[in-house]
């Protein structure tokens, strides 16, 4: 029991996590076997994602998006040294759970691949979580399906609310803090806002499923946590500068 209580703050579970090499290695072996059987569905999902990316790149659009000034300024304005704000590190899911109050996902990338603590993790369909512990070859991700995980969300008209999980159904999350005046319709999309330091803007979280009361909604997650194979860890090149600035603002209000 003492182990439970000394570690009750979930963020500090520093010595029992499956980022450890023993369990990480075993999960890699198991993953090699089990991915073979799901190749079909993985291929389908990757193909769909490719199609979506081609579409957003504008390969089917008559105008060249690279000549669009709004598009190019957005890319170069971020920093002087690097023109791309976000870098995506591809990763494979080794272990995943959805039945607990705080769920963790083990990935096959670690500090050798440039993963650091508190980086955001997304899948092809939507957000997944953020990195909580890193070892040289593996990392554990605090899943969106966790009690203490809060992510700020943006609905279609620009209102910002927050998304949490109530610990019951792994395909539904709760969106709160939307004013009464804003009415969401069923199947309206909910995206991440740029307020969160871990995720880029406009990553899909899910679609509205039902209204709980005036200000909170149930959201169907767009990420299928039951069938999670390939994810991306987001490296934010301006994140360090931003968090230093935000921390110093908190100290001297």
């Amino acid at each position: 029991m003492s182990i439970v209580f000394s570690n009750y703050s979930y963020q500090q579970t520093s010595y029992i996590n499956s980022a450890r090499n023993i369990s990480g290695n075993l999960y890699t072996q198991k993953n090699k076997l089990s991915t073979f059987f799901s190749l079909q569905s993985v291929n389908d999902s990757l193909q769909k994602e490719n199609a979506r990316l081609m579409h957003t790149l504008g390969l089917h659009l008559p105008t060249n998006p690279l000549k669009d000034t709004s598009y190019t300024t957005k890319r170069t304005i971020d920093s002087v040294t690097s023109t791309i704000q976000y870098r995506y590190i591809p990763a494979r899911v080794l272990n995943n759970s959805i039945d607990q109050k705080t769920n963790y996902i083990t990935l096959n990338v670690g500090s050798l691949q440039g993963v650091k603590k508190n980086m955001g993790v997304i899948s092809g369909n939507g957000i997944v979580g953020k990195v909580s512990h890193v070892s040289p070859n593996y990392c554990t991700v605090l899943s969106l399906l966790s009690e203490h995980f809060v992510v700020s969300a943006l609905v279609a008209d620009g209102t910002v609310g927050k998304v949490t999980w109530d610990g019951l159904d792994p395909s539904l999350v709760l969106l709160t803090g939307i004013p009464q005046s804003v009415k969401l319709k069923k199947l309206d999309s909910v995206f991440t806002s740029g307020y969160s330091a871990f995720f880029p803007e406009q990553i899909l979280i899910g679609r509205a499923a039902q209204v709980m009361n005036g200000t909170s909604y149930k959201i169907w997650l767009s990420t299928n946590f039951r069938n999670l194979h390939y994810v991306y860890v987001i490296e934010d090149n301006t994140n360090v500068e931003r968090s230093i600035l935000e921390d110093s603002t908190k100290i001297t209000p």
Partner: peptide, 16 residues
């Protein structure tokens, strides 16, 4: 229990 904990990312719950 602690073996189970290592694989489930739970801090000592299975062990207790």
């Amino acid at each position: 229990g602690i073996t189970m904990d290592m694989f489930c990312n739970t801090p000592g719950m299975h062990a207790s």
